[in-house]
Design a protein around this nucleic acid. Sequence first.
DNA 1: GAGTTTGAAACT
DNA 2: CAGTTTCAAACTC
Length: 789
Amino acid sequence: MDVVSPELNSLLPDEIMDTEAIIMDDDPPSESPAASGQSQPSDDSPVPMETDVPAVPEIVSLCSDAPPTQLTQAGTTSTPTGSTLCNTTSATQLLLTSSTVSSSSLTLRPATASTLTSTTPKTTSSLSRVSLTSGGLQKLSAPFTLSANHQIILNKVASSPGADTARSQGTTTTTTTPGGQQFMVTTIGKSGQPIVLQLPHTGSKSASVQGLGEAKANPQHFKVVTVSSASQVSTLQAQQLKTVQIAKKTQVSSAGPIKFVFTKAVNNKGLTAQTSVSNVITGRVLSTSSPVTPPRTITLSETLGSSSSSKIAISPLKSPSKLTVVSVASQVPNSPQKSVSLPLNMAHLGHQILLQQSTATSPAKTMKPVQTVTVGGVGAPQFKTIFPLSTPSNVQQIQVPGSRFHYVRLVTATTGSSTGHAGSPITNSSMTAKPMVVNTTQVRMSVPIVPAQTMKQVVPKPLTSSGQVLTTQTQQRLIMPATSLPQIQPNLTNLPPGTMLAPAPGSGNMGYAVLPAQYVTQLQQSAYVTLASSSGFSTPTGIQTQARLPLNGLSTSGAAFRPRKPCNCTKSQCLKLYCDCFANGEFCQNCNCTNCFNNLEHETDRAKAIKACLDRNPEAFKPKIGKGKEGESDRRHSKGCNCKRSGCLKNYCECYEAKIMCSSTCKCVGCKNFEESPERKTLMHLADAAEVRVQQQTAAKTKLSSQISDLLTRTTPAITSGGGRMPYTFVTKEVAEVTCECLLEQAEQAELNQQPQATAERMILEEFGRCLMRIISSAGKTDCPSINC
DNA sequence: GAGTTTGAAACT
DNA sequence: CAGTTTCAAACTC
């Protein structure tokens, strides 16, 4: 069974791995009776991450739109398709992402998809259709408990008979459908906390129990994994966001594995009934791919009128892979727009997040383009990543002085109905399980990005039919790096800025492509984008459109970004910090390096290299030039230079190169890079003078160029018109004849006077000079200059 | 453009 | 942690 191993999970940060939020501790018994009966109060206070998201009561449900105090329709456990998670309480919403591949046996029909988010009683009936290939009964085993109200309670305390007892930190429950599908619910993190999944009522299906080992026999697998959490701390409240993902594993079908991403927002603190809920998916999608089919990622997200958004993420990769998807918000139609501030400190998280953002006023059926990108060279491992089709308006570039990176602020294109408030607590709209709205304008997200340049070595592959992204999501998404890379995991926060971990084929748990954020940006600008509308599921007005965007990022506005100097590495394979590209968390592109491994084709090696660098220096990928101590406004080198011979007045010195003074942190010898240094002042003056010279030269060139252009403009018509002719045009046949006569006359004079030959030649030349002068002088006077000897 | 210098990174 | 080696950029000619 391809499940996140406990060892791997144990490496995940607590912020991510903490599944406490799943527990419905705060849920009133009336709201989740089953949960109350099974759950255990958690003494562990959630570890809020450095975010500003107000806390929201933790609610885990498998479908939305449940009235605030009303339990949702309970169903059978037969929906490994994970179709619906009903939010039984107001606080937290489990965002379901379901996916399907059209070519696979796992087919999700529009009608089915529409029911995914339906919270109405119809959900139950429609869910039966939602079941992917198997509509059979589900087997539930301890600690998988099916409550009376059709809630699946995952008691972490209890261990599944078939499960490995060593998994003390979580339990895994496998549920198998009659059709052979198997879906596993595993809780990662702290034990003793049940997870309550409230399922819609399908009526005819009973739960059965199956051990973990049985899953292997099943051709298809669903993996529900509580992957990670992202908590955000605001001045008011803190919120933990967790993700439950279900990955469907097809055995040998043409379609690749299908990943179901369940997103759950975990609230640590209770909120008022009208507090909106924000969902953030920070989990990983565990998927396996068929060895034959190309990677395929399909994301389906939809929001119905009063339902929460559901998403399906299918990413059949060639090998077990992980994809972190962050769902920031969903929309709340038919309800007052409630905003949720989800500041995500990228630096803190060390992740790259693909922000999914909903438009506040758009109907639930509003589609947000989502980009699926397949990258990798020919024959190289292919990667699929879901990217939002971000409009330029959603990204604000931020210039950080001294930073070698460019930052962007993801901005929500909120509409007038959006009522986002900075720092405002989350207003709960989950009482009705409505999609949540995130005002990302408040997202304190700094994602270092890099100029979107054409990838020399890695070119996004055009999507084929298998690489489409179908989405009904109206949210902007952030893809967070997969957090399960053991080697990198301990230092996730120190990954290269904007790094995203993407699944890498054939590398098992190592299979991650550490994508520079800029690459994502580049992909966003260059990759083919498949636009799909969820309305195809919910409304007839929906359209599915595919738009091909230019592959070359240079053709986009992103090309205007800072061009990076190409490296010339020869021995480091561009996997050492010697390489500026690598040190900046960038892929090499348009470089002059040889034997370069700093690309997606060698993502495994690259990941190892990153890990090695982080092991040596956890700060390796952090900007060296940062803010000084508190009170110091000047930038300063975080580590300081160690110059010996340059006097810190050459670009060998990192301080000087960064145009900053050396500080006390420097260990340089003979430093002259300080404020009062006369050498430095001289250099500065020289530099200023040089700059002035350059400017003057530039201006002169510009002026000269302008004059030449003007001259050509003036003279060109003159040649044909006769006015203002070029000088040579005055040397007509007549003029030449006259001139020759003059010269001959001089020769005759010299001969008559018996002048020496030298004198004769001189006389002739002088006459020729005079003739030329006459020609020139008369050029501007008359059209037919007369030359007289 | 080739060769040298330099200092950070990597290694021991 | 210090000393040495490696490396690529900066610099010089």
